[in-house]
Design a protein around this nucleic acid. Structure first.
Lengths: 138, 138
DNA sequence: ACTTGACTTAGACAATGTCTATTGTAGGAT
DNA sequence: ATCCTACAATAGACATTGTCTAAGTCAAGT
C-alpha cells in the first residue's frame, strides 16, 4: 500500500506526518470521499491536522495525477484514489453512492471532428445515473 | 420562444413577472449560465427580483425537466436550457467554455449488466475535456 | 546540529446555495 | 369588478465548501 508514498517521495515530496496521513486515508479504502470526509478521517489519526492542509494536500495529489477529482452533482467534490486504471462512475440519484464502472467502448472515438469545434480533446468522463439496490428496496 | 412559457402555464405554473423573466433569460441565449449569472441578467430586466427567487425558479425548472443542471468541475452549477434534445458537453479546461456536442453511439449500451451492480440505470452524462481554439492560440 | 525553505496552522474571508418569517399577488370564486 | 386564499417573492440570516494570509514549525540536506 505504500506504493503511493514511495511514488510521492520519488517525486521530491517532503514527507510530513500530515501528508502521510492524508495519503493513508485515500489509499486505505477505495471509496469516494469529500474533502471534509478526508479531513475527518485524518483528524482521527492525527488530531492536530488542519483543514487547509487537507485541502492543500488533496490539491497537490490531484496535480500530480495520483488522485482524481470527481464532480457529480453533489455540492462537494469527491476524491478518487483509483487514478491509475481508467474508469467511469455510476451514481445513485437518491443516496449519492458512487461505484467505479468500466464500460466497453471508447467514447472519445464517438466524437466526430465536426463536433469538436476546434477543441483539442484530451479526455472524457462518463457518469451513469440510476438508483442503487438499497434505495430501490426502500 | 414562448414555447417554454406555454408549457409551464400548461403545467399549472402560476405566471409571475419573476418567473417570466427567469424563463426569458434562459430561453434567450443558449449558453450555460451559473445561477448568479442568471440572477444578474434577471435583475437587468426586473431590478427587484431576489436571489432566492432565482434559485427557487431554477430548481423548479430543473424538477420539471425544462432545464438541465450541468456539474462540470467548476464551483458553480450551470443551467442548460437545451433539455429537449439529448446532448453532451465539451468543456475547455482553461477558460471553462462549454459547448453542446452530439456524439455518435449510445454509452448506455456500453455498460454491461455485470457492471451495473444491481443499479437501475436511467441516464448518462458524458463530459469531454479539452482546450478550446481561443485558449490554444493564447 | 544547524539552516533554510517548504510545510502547517488558525482563522478570516469568499463563493455558492438554503431556509425562514413576512409580505405580496395571480387567478379563481363571487 | 372585487375579494380570497393559497402560492410565490422578498430580505437577509445562515450553512456549506473552498481559499487565502501571516506567522510559526519542521524535514532533510550540509
Amino acid at each position: 500500500m505504500s506504493d503511493l508514498l514511495e511514488r510521492l517521495r520519488g517525486r521530491g515530496w517532503r514527507m510530513t506526518a500530515q501528508r502521510r496521513v492524508v495519503a493513508e486515508v485515500l489509499d486505505g479504502e477505495h471509496v469516494h470521499l469529500t474533502a471534509d470526509e478526508v479531513h475527518a478521517r485524518a483528524v482521527a489519526k492525527l488530531p492536530e491536522i488542519s483543514r487547509a492542509t487537507v485541502y492543500n494536500t488533496l490539491g497537490e495529489l490531484v496535480s500530480l495525477g495520483e488522485v482524481l477529482e470527481v464532480a457529480t452533482d453533489k455540492r462537494a467534490k469527491r476524491y478518487d484514489p483509483n487514478a491509475h486504471r481508467p474508469h467511469h462512475h455510476l451514481v445513485c440519484a437518491q443516496c449519492g453512492a458512487i461505484r467505479d464502472v468500466h464500460p466497453s467502448g471508447n467514447p472519445l472515438a464517438d466524437l466526430p471532428d465536426t463536433e469538436r469545434y476546434g477543441f483539442t480533446v484530451s479526455g472524457v468522463e462518463v457518469t451513469y445515473r440510476g438508483v442503487c439496490p438499497n434505495c430501490a428496496a426502500a
